[in-house]
């Protein structure tokens, strides 16, 4: 199957000026009594680079991005992030590494009974573990001010006191992005941030993610099923098939019609 889609495979290998922010080699993961989800994934992301990860359902994209932070433990392979061997980190060092990586989930994962402001303040837990980062009422003024700035960046400063369960899907995802900004990350991972949103809200979210990553010079790895988003908001598109990297193209060389063939070839 991989041979059949090799026509699209134009892996970039020449740009190695800077050490990659993320370098993954031979990453494998299989679940107990389940099929092998990832079988030898290789990928490298340079500082400031935006990479879209595409692939049909069940090809292991979400498992892959969770393995990068060991939210799911991989079975085999090497993961190096910021020059650190992720699989060799102690739990304390792993927490420190995670604090440097912003993660935006498909289902925003906000605490619904708390205000938007409290949810954004949770991002400060990357660098402080005191009660000041648990709820907005306990937060010091400088933390509240920074959280308000993050909410302002996502145009939701007017909803600071609104409970998360009163926000729309798009607004919730923007609060999740503000929480990520509050974290002051050096690299951003987003697992289908545009899924479960209407086309307009999905595009807004992707543009916001792309712009905030650009203005801070952050590397971005995002999963998307929207091929136009993948092309517009990334420098490179990587496709997973059968648990391996089966496609690696520059976004400016890709077009949706060709990429659709990648999904078509994937179907049994």
């Amino acid at each position: 199957m991989l041979d059949r889609i090799s026509g699209l495979r134009t892996v970039e290998t020449g740009s190695t000026e800077a050490e990659p922010t993320l370098s993954v080699r031979r990453l494998s993961k299989s679940f107990t009594n389940g099929p092998c989800v990832l079988s030898g994934v290789d990928i490298a992301i340079r500082p400031g680079e935006s990479v879209a990860l595409i692939g049909a359902n069940g090809t292991g994209k979400s498992t892959f991005v969770r393995c990068l932070l060991r939210l799911i433990e991989p079975n085999d392979g090497d993961i190096r992030m910021f020059g650190l061997d992720v699989r060799a980190l102690t739990s304390r060092s792993l927490r420190h590494l995670r604090s440097r990586v912003g993660f935006v989930f498909q289902r925003h994962n906000l605490v619904l009974r708390l205000s938007a402001l409290s949810n954004v303040i949770h991002g400060a837990q990357a660098r402080m573990s005191s009660p000041g980062s648990w709820y907005q009422a306990l937060a010091p003024s400088r933390v509240r001010d920074e959280a308000m700035t993050c909410l302002e960046r996502v145009s939701l400063d007017g909803k600071a006191c609104a409970r998360a369960d009163s926000l729309s899907g798009g607004q919730s995802q923007r609060v999740a992005i503000a929480r990520m900004l509050m974290q002051r990350p050096e690299f951003v991972i987003a697992d289908e941030p545009d899924a479960s949103l209407d086309p307009r809200a999905g595009e807004e979210i992707m543009r916001l993610l792309h712009e905030t990553a650009r203005e801070r010079g952050l590397g971005l790895l995002f999963i998307s099923h929207d091929l136009e988003h993948a092309i517009r908001f990334s420098d490179r598109i990587v496709g997973l098939a059968a648990g391996q990297v089966a496609l690696d193209v520059r976004s400016n060389n890709a077009n949706p019609t060709e990429l659709r063939k990648f999904f078509a070839e994937e179907r049994p």
Partner: peptide, 29 residues
């Protein structure tokens, strides 16, 4: 309680106590 917010805070690098107080307790209130 919903495991999503717990996973989000674990991904941030929050402490166990921070995750419980910020994500578990409000949802279980």
């Amino acid at each position: 309680t919903d495991k999503g917010p717990r996973e989000a805070l674990a991904a941030i690098g929050a402490s166990r106590l921070g995750t419980i107080m910020s994500a578990v307790v409000p949802n279980a209130m």
